[in-house]
């Protein structure tokens, strides 16, 4: 294992300490409880947004804490859900009286831990709503799986819903918009290499020089199938077509397109993928009216990418364009 770390057991704590000093103007970090909180929290009469999940997906979620996005993030150990204590502490830290929305990626552990936190918060009389993201078309949404995973749409949802929450909208409206964003977005990812969990010390799976894994998630877990490596043009087709089909996109639709790096792929290659994506969508008369290219929801040092398409309407576009100021996303302010 070759990593820029001190000790595997200290990775999350030391990275959080680094974030705290690098972004002291935007966030407060409680190293003991392992939570990241917006600097000016709690904000009175604003619905507070909390998300969390395993570490290793940076900048998700801690990098999205700040104006116009999350109020708090709860990072767990690498690829491991945080615990209910963290979520409850975060809830106390950001609750300004207008209620709290938990944004949960659909993984068994995340869902169960947030569920326990919500039960605890409810016993204290704190109003909590939860929304689960499940946009990964690589997973069949059936009784025979844990359901689709929450991936790229989570980033877009945190931004858009954060924009609405900033206007002082009530919890029910904020939660409704969150469900709407989740229902209008889909993603699919692929890997060129595996990744190494620091505590494990070796790659989670092996991929040959001429192989790629299609339909991966964001935890170094293997995907749906392994195939021979091919060109960026073909890979983009493989990822995009199921997304278009699942969303039922048709000529004239407008989308926000995100080409996301898994952590180990250069921007140079991500832009090649975006170019192919643009070509595919243009061929179907679907227009990309907003875009995001870069490493936004990663899987440690995995090489590869994911494509997310979100069907836009005026409301979604308005809150996507709204000002945001966080460590990892900033515009308009």
């Amino acid at each position: 294992m070759k990593k820029l770390i001190n000790k595997p057991g200290d990775v999350v704590r030391e990275a959080l300490a680094g974030m705290a000093s690098a972004h002291a103007d935007l966030i407060k970090v409680d190293l003991e409880q392992q939570i990241i909180v917006r600097k000016d929290a709690p904000l009175q009469n604003k619905v507070a947004l909390i998300s969390g999940g395993g570490s290793g997906h940076e900048p998700l979620h801690g990098g999205y804490v700040g104006y116009g996005m999350l109020d708090a993030a709860c990072p767990g150990a690498v690829f491991t859900s945080p615990v209910p204590d963290q979520m409850l502490t975060a809830t106390h830290a950001v609750n300004g009286g207008a209620g709290v929305l938990y944004i949960i990626k659909n993984y068994t552990g995340d869902v169960m831990n947030f569920e326990m936190a919500a039960e605890l918060a409810a016993t204290e009389g704190i109003e909590v709503a939860s929304v689960i993201t499940n946009d990964d078309v690589a997973v069949q949404d059936s009784l025979y799986t844990a359901g689709r995973r929450g991936v790229g749409v989570t980033v877009l949802l945190e931004k858009i819903v954060g924009g609405l929450a900033e206007t002082g909208a009530p919890l029910s409206q904020v939660a409704d918009l969150a469900r709407k964003v989740n229902s209008q977005g889909r993603s699919m990812g692929m890997a060129l290499t595996s990744c190494t969990v620091p505590a494990a010390g070796k790659p989670t799976f092996e991929l040959g020089e001429d192989e790629m894994e299609i339909g991966i998630g964001i935890h170094g877990e293997p995907g749906r199938r392994r195939t021979r490596l091919t060109t960026a043009a073909e890979i983009t087709e493989i990822l995009t077509n199921p997304v278009i089909e699942d969303l039922g996109l048709k000529a004239g639709d407008e989308v926000l397109a995100m080409v996301n790096g898994m952590g180990g792929t250069p921007l140079l290659e991500l832009y090649i993928v975006f170019n192919e994506l643009q070509r595919i969508l243009q061929g179907k008369a679907i227009s990309i009216t907003r875009s995001l290219v870069g490493n936004y929801i990663t899987s440690l040092e995995m090489a590869g990418c994911s494509i997310t398409l979100l069907r836009l309407d005026k409301q979604l576009q308005k809150y996507w364009d709204a000002p945001v100021h966080t460590p990892a996303l900033r515009w308009g302010r």
């Binding site: 767990g76 209910p84 169960m112 831990n113 569920e115 326990m116």
Partner: peptide, 12 residues
């Protein structure tokens, strides 16, 4: 265990 394990194993 709920407070320290995380993942699915912690709640289970």
């Amino acid at each position: 265990l709920v407070s320290t394990v995380g993942g699915a194993s912690g709640p289970l």
